[in-house]
Design a protein around this nucleic acid. Sequence first.
DNA 1: CACCAGGGTGGTT
DNA 2: AACCACCATGGT
Length: 214
Amino acid sequence: MSAVQPLFDAWLAHYGPQRWWPGESPFEVMVGAVLVQRTSWANAARAIAALQERRLLDSSRLLRLSLDELGEAIAPAGFFRVKAARLASLARFVEDEGGIGEIERLPTGTLRSKLLSIHGVGEETADAILLYAFDRPVVVIDAYLRRILERVRGSAGQVHDDAIRREVLSSIDDARGLNELHALAVIHGKTACRKKPMCEACCVRAHCSTGRRL
DNA sequence: CACCAGGGTGGTT
DNA sequence: AACCACCATGGT
């Protein structure tokens, strides 16, 4: 019996469909996935807007810029020196693969391995790119989802990512649902009570003991 | 003032 | 394998 379905149903009913990711092209989504690392979406969005204004949401054009210039453009997203290098390696990957059109043809497992080989792309970023840029049915596991599932499971000890993947996929296995699940987990984590670990009422019921509503 | 935000890397134990 | 410091801006 999976604990995921009741959470998904409650969140969807309460918050409504989120329809992530706000991005017009796969490359823009990839860039956004890096820029938002450990950063609020509001700040990442400013950096994306700055790139858009300079017509840099294009791998070949982005590669022509120096890291200093790139860093200056994305400064609002924070960690700008690190992220400038990561965007450059992302753009180089797209160019080396022959463009987004070629990347779209790769099988999900192959694409995931390639994404993970990019410097600055870890598991969460790779899975977010697979799901939101390329519409692949993968589970995006972030700190929110881990925290929530650990609490719902109740038992001590950490829940391994592969166990989370299997449990989620037993209830939700299509890209559309997995898209909503991750978005709703983030929205819930930002708006519901922040007790660590989250109380069960926050996760499952219509209210939580701190008085903030689900 | 402290704490957080849609992580990942490199170094140390 | 499990920590740890570090990266940096903007909002609350």
